[in-house]
Amino acid sequence: MEDDYETSKMLALTLSLLNTNPELDQVSTALTLCDPTWNYDTNQSKAEELDPATHNVPTFPRNPNHEKISGTNDTNKELVKKKRKLVVLGPRPSPKPRRPWPIRKILKASDLGNSSRLLVPKDSATNHFLRYLDDKFVQRVESDEGLGVTVQDYDTGTRHQLTFKFWSSAKSYILNGEWRGMFVQRRGLKEKDEIGLYWDASRAMFMFSLLQRA
Rank of each mutant, 00 (worst) to 15 (best):
Ile106Phe: 15
Val27Trp: 11
Asp74Ile: 14
Val141Tyr: 07
Leu112Gln: 04
Lys81Ser: 15
Thr150Glu: 07
Thr163Tyr: 09
Phe137Gly: 04
Thr156Gly: 04
Leu33Met: 07
Leu118Phe: 04
Arg159Ser: 13
Met182Gly: 05
Pro61Phe: 00
Gln185Met: 04
Ile195Leu: 01
Leu119Trp: 07
Thr54Asn: 15
Glu67Trp: 12
Asn176Asp: 10
Asn76Trp: 11
Tyr132Phe: 10
Arg84Gly: 14
Ile174Arg: 07
Phe208Ala: 02
Asp51Gly: 02
Ala125Thr: 03
Thr42His: 10
Arg98Lys: 15
Trp199Asn: 05
Val27Gly: 04
Leu119Lys: 08
Asp155Pro: 03
Arg117His: 12
Gly181Ser: 08
Leu31Ala: 13
Pro95Lys: 05
Thr20His: 07
Lys68Ala: 05
Ala204Asn: 06
Arg92Tyr: 03
Pro22Met: 02
Lys46Ile: 15
Leu147Pro: 01
Pro36Asp: 14
Arg92Trp: 06
Leu24Ile: 11
Lys165Asp: 02
Pro36Trp: 04
His160Met: 08
Thr20Asp: 09
Phe183Trp: 03
Phe60Ile: 07
Arg84Trp: 03
Thr7Leu: 11
Leu89Phe: 12
Ile174Ser: 05
Phe137His: 12
Leu118Ser: 00
Lys83Phe: 10
Ser202Ile: 11
Asp74Glu: 14
Asn19Tyr: 14
Lys136Gly: 03
Leu15Arg: 12
Asp111Leu: 03
Pro52Lys: 12
Ser172Arg: 07
Ser45Gly: 11
Leu189Tyr: 07
Arg62His: 10
Arg187Phe: 10
Pro95Ala: 03
Gly146Met: 01
Asp200Lys: 04
Tyr5His: 14
Val57Asp: 14
Tyr154Asn: 09
Ile69Pro: 14
Thr72Leu: 15
Arg140Phe: 06
Asp134Ala: 13
Trp38Pro: 13
Gln44Val: 10
Gln44Pro: 02
Ser28Tyr: 03
Gln152Trp: 01
Ser28Trp: 05
Pro64Glu: 00
Arg159Gln: 15
Pro36Arg: 13
Lys192Ile: 00
Gln44Leu: 10
Pro121His: 14
Asn19Trp: 11
Lys68Arg: 13
Val88Ala: 06
Cys34Gly: 15
Tyr154Phe: 09
Val151Arg: 00
His128Asn: 09
Gln185Thr: 15
Lys46Met: 15
Lys165His: 07
Arg117Val: 04
Leu162Tyr: 04
Trp38Met: 04
Trp199Gln: 05
Thr72Ser: 09
Ala214Pro: 05
Leu15Val: 13
Phe183Asn: 01
Asn73Asp: 08
Trp199His: 01
Leu33Val: 12
Glu145Asp: 07
Tyr5Asn: 13
